[in-house]
């Protein structure tokens, strides 16, 4: 564990708390892509079921339980409690374009050709693109509530912080995880446009609006 990874994980944790806060206080999931949230459930379940056979630390296990539990809870809120505020007609990204390529990539790139390792690779690839339906929705509507952008920023910062973590680990432990690093760089790259608008507009007190 190093500082970059810890701050990254805390940022990830914060992003979910911000999202829950947004949904609970506005009693609405407007502006949130159900598809992205469903993909995160798939990511966490595929990757964190190793809870049952791999013990790393109490921290690690507690975070895994939290991420699986909170992502399922968010789906429940969107699908049942605040269903009327969820508008599927603007959440139109075709997720099979993500699921199928990720499944194929995980069969080719994995550290061991066995179900658990293939699932791990699949979750890494899927996580890297899971935000696309959300970004696509943002692009379509052209604007977002400030709190939604804080959620996305925290999520992006989490991934960005994993990059210095890998560099640090490479020099201190000599470890390199090519699958996680490649997917992680792609994932962070997807946020660059968003970050630009977030830092130049939202953090200056302006509304998040994309140029027409």
């Amino acid at each position: 564990m190093n500082l970059f990874r810890l701050l990254g994980d805390l940022s990830h944790l914060a992003s979910i708390l911000v999202l829950l806060h947004k949904i609970q206080t506005s009693r609405s999931c407007r502006g949130i892509s159900f598809k992205t949230q469903a993909l995160y459930v798939a990511v966490f379940v595929a990757r964190y079921l190793d809870l049952f056979w791999r013990y790393i630390s109490l921290y690690n296990s507690a975070m895994k339980v939290f991420f699986i539990g909170s992502s399922c809870y968010i789906l429940y809120l969107m699908k049942y409690r605040y269903r009327p505020t969820n508008d599927p007609s603007i959440d139109t990204f075709r997720i099979e374009y993500l699921l199928v390529p990720c499944a194929i990539l995980s069969l080719i790139f994995n550290y061991n050709f066995m179900p658990t390792e293939i699932l791990w690779s699949f979750s890494i690839f899927l996580e890297s693109v899971a935000i696309l339906p959300q970004l696509f929705m943002l692009q379509r509507t052209g604007e977002a509530e400030a709190i939604t952008t804080h959620y996305l920023a925290a999520l992006g910062i989490y991934r960005a912080l994993y990059i210095p973590n890998w560099i640090y680990r490479y020099f201190t432990e000599g470890v390199i995880d090519p699958i996680a690093v490649t997917a992680g760089i792609v994932q962070t790259g997807l946020y660059l446009d968003f970050f630009y608008v977030y830092f130049t507009k939202v953090l200056q007190g302006q509304k998040f609006e994309l140029p027409a």
Partner: peptide
């Protein structure tokens, strides 16, 4: 351990 398949990251 220090191999990629240790998967100690979240």
């Amino acid at each position: 351990s220090a191999t990629p398949d240790a998967h100690d990251e979240l």
